[in-house]
Simulated scan of single mutants.
Amino acid sequence: MENKNQFAFGRRNYLLMIVGLVVLGIGFIIMTLDKEPYGEGFLGITLGPIFLVIGFIIEFFAILVKDRKKV
């Protein structure tokens, strides 16, 4: 019989999701700190988007990784 109170993901997945969201938030904050007009400086065009891509990659793996206890 299946337990109806189980979550879809394990603890490891949720921790990775939180880390990914924090990295995404940092990326958006970095992009707003750019002092150039329209955010066309190093922070708005290079560093912020790098953090965003890393954050989305972390979120992707957070969804796909299997929790050790669930296997």
Rank of each mutant, 00 (worst) to 15 (best):
M1Q: 09
N3V: 06
K4R: 06
K4F: 11
K4T: 09
K4V: 12
N5T: 15
N5R: 07
N5D: 14
Q6V: 08
F7Q: 03
A8S: 11
F9G: 13
G10R: 01
G10P: 02
R11E: 02
N13S: 12
N13Q: 13
N13T: 04
N13H: 03
N13R: 02
Y14H: 13
L16R: 02
L16A: 12
L16S: 03
I18R: 03
I18D: 03
I18C: 10
V19I: 15
V19D: 00
V19N: 00
G20K: 09
G20S: 14
V23H: 08
V23Q: 08
L24D: 14
G25H: 10
I26M: 10
F28P: 00
I29Y: 05
I29L: 06
I30G: 07
L33P: 00
P37Q: 13
E40G: 11
F42D: 01
G44S: 07
G44F: 07
T46N: 05
T46P: 00
T46R: 04
T46M: 09
L47E: 12
L47D: 09
G48K: 00
G48D: 02
P49I: 10
I50R: 01
F51N: 08
L52D: 04
I54L: 12
I54A: 12
G55L: 09
F56A: 11
I57W: 15
I57H: 03
F61H: 04
L64N: 05
V65T: 15
K66Q: 05
K66Y: 00
D67I: 01
R68G: 06
K69Q: 13
K69Y: 12
K70M: 14
